[in-house]
Deep mutational scan, measured.
Amino acid sequence: GIPATNLSRVAGLEKQLAIELKVKQGAENMIQTYSNGSTKDRKLLLTAQQMLQDSKTKIDIIRMQLRRALQ
C-alpha cells in the first residue's frame, strides 16, 4: 500500500491541482475575451497568455509529484 504520509501529500497535491486547473480555465477564458478586443486589450491578452503558460507548467509539475507520491 501507500504510506499515510504520502496519502496526505496526495490530498494536498490534488487540492493544488484543482486550483491550478481553475486558474488555467480562467486564463483561457481571458484569452478568448481579449483576443478579439482592441489594442488596449493587448497587454491583458499577453498577461493572460503568460498566466496560462505558468499554469500549464505548474499542472505538469503537480502531476509529476502526484505520480511519484503514488508509486
Score class of each variant (00 low, 15 high):
residue 33 T to D: 10
residue 11 A to K: 12
residue 50 Q to V: 05
residue 29 N to E: 13
residue 11 A to N: 07
residue 15 K to Y: 06
residue 55 S to R: 00
residue 50 Q to L: 09
residue 15 K to I: 05
residue 15 K to T: 04
residue 63 R to W: 08
residue 36 N to W: 06
residue 70 L to H: 04
residue 29 N to C: 14
residue 69 A to I: 13
residue 30 M to I: 05
residue 29 N to G: 07
residue 14 E to C: 15
residue 5 T to C: 15
residue 33 T to I: 14
residue 27 A to E: 01
residue 15 K to F: 09
residue 52 L to I: 04
residue 29 N to K: 12
residue 43 K to A: 13
residue 56 K to H: 04
residue 71 Q to V: 06
residue 33 T to V: 11
residue 10 V to G: 02
residue 11 A to P: 04
residue 28 E to Y: 08
residue 30 M to D: 10
residue 45 L to P: 00
residue 31 I to R: 01
residue 25 Q to L: 07
residue 44 L to F: 07
residue 56 K to L: 12
residue 26 G to S: 12
residue 17 L to A: 00
residue 4 A to W: 03
residue 43 K to G: 09
residue 36 N to E: 13
residue 9 R to E: 14
residue 18 A to H: 05
residue 16 Q to P: 00
residue 9 R to S: 13
residue 32 Q to L: 08
residue 64 M to P: 14
residue 2 I to Y: 05
residue 37 G to K: 06
residue 25 Q to E: 14
residue 61 I to T: 04
residue 57 T to S: 08
residue 40 K to H: 11
residue 57 T to P: 01
residue 15 K to R: 11
residue 64 M to Q: 14
residue 42 R to S: 15
residue 24 K to T: 03
residue 33 T to G: 08
residue 5 T to A: 11
residue 31 I to A: 02
residue 38 S to P: 14
residue 34 Y to D: 01
residue 6 N to G: 12
residue 70 L to S: 05
residue 12 G to L: 15
residue 17 L to M: 04
residue 54 D to A: 14
residue 25 Q to M: 07
residue 71 Q to T: 08
residue 35 S to I: 11
residue 6 N to P: 10
residue 56 K to T: 14
residue 13 L to E: 00
residue 10 V to F: 02
residue 56 K to D: 04
residue 9 R to D: 11
residue 14 E to I: 15
residue 8 S to T: 11
residue 58 K to E: 02
residue 42 R to T: 12
residue 54 D to F: 03
residue 15 K to N: 04
residue 44 L to T: 03
residue 40 K to N: 07
residue 35 S to G: 05
residue 43 K to C: 13
residue 8 S to H: 12
residue 20 E to I: 09
residue 14 E to N: 10
residue 20 E to G: 01
residue 15 K to G: 03
residue 50 Q to E: 05
residue 68 R to D: 14
residue 45 L to F: 09
residue 26 G to I: 13
residue 55 S to T: 10
residue 1 G to F: 10
residue 35 S to V: 08
residue 8 S to Y: 07
residue 47 T to C: 15
residue 12 G to W: 15
residue 70 L to R: 07
residue 41 D to F: 04
residue 40 K to V: 09
residue 57 T to R: 14
residue 12 G to V: 15
residue 22 K to I: 08
residue 46 L to G: 03
residue 38 S to K: 09
residue 23 V to R: 12
residue 21 L to Y: 06
residue 61 I to L: 09
residue 67 R to F: 14
residue 1 G to N: 09
residue 26 G to Q: 15
residue 18 A to M: 10
residue 59 I to P: 00
residue 6 N to C: 15
residue 21 L to P: 00
residue 22 K to W: 05
residue 54 D to P: 00
residue 21 L to K: 03
residue 66 L to R: 01
residue 45 L to N: 01
residue 35 S to N: 10
residue 40 K to R: 06
residue 26 G to A: 09
residue 18 A to T: 06
residue 49 Q to P: 00
residue 28 E to Q: 07
residue 37 G to N: 12
residue 25 Q to A: 10
residue 14 E to W: 15
residue 37 G to D: 11
residue 48 A to N: 01
residue 14 E to S: 13
residue 13 L to Q: 00
residue 8 S to E: 15
residue 54 D to K: 12
residue 21 L to V: 04
residue 32 Q to I: 10
residue 67 R to E: 10
residue 28 E to T: 03
residue 12 G to C: 15
residue 4 A to Y: 03
residue 63 R to N: 05
residue 32 Q to P: 01
residue 1 G to C: 15
residue 1 G to Q: 09
residue 40 K to I: 13
residue 1 G to H: 11
residue 21 L to M: 10
residue 69 A to R: 02
residue 18 A to D: 04
residue 59 I to N: 00
residue 16 Q to N: 04
residue 36 N to F: 10
residue 2 I to E: 14
residue 19 I to Y: 07
residue 39 T to W: 06
residue 46 L to R: 08
residue 27 A to Q: 02
residue 44 L to Y: 06
residue 11 A to M: 06
residue 51 M to D: 05
residue 43 K to V: 13
residue 9 R to W: 15
residue 41 D to S: 03
residue 5 T to I: 10
residue 53 Q to K: 11
residue 58 K to L: 03
residue 21 L to I: 05
residue 21 L to G: 01
residue 20 E to Q: 15
residue 43 K to D: 12
residue 65 Q to D: 04
residue 7 L to T: 12
residue 51 M to A: 08
residue 45 L to Q: 02
residue 31 I to M: 04
residue 49 Q to D: 02
residue 43 K to W: 08
residue 39 T to Y: 08
residue 41 D to Q: 03
residue 23 V to Q: 07
residue 36 N to R: 08
residue 16 Q to A: 14
residue 3 P to Y: 04
residue 62 I to R: 00
residue 40 K to M: 08
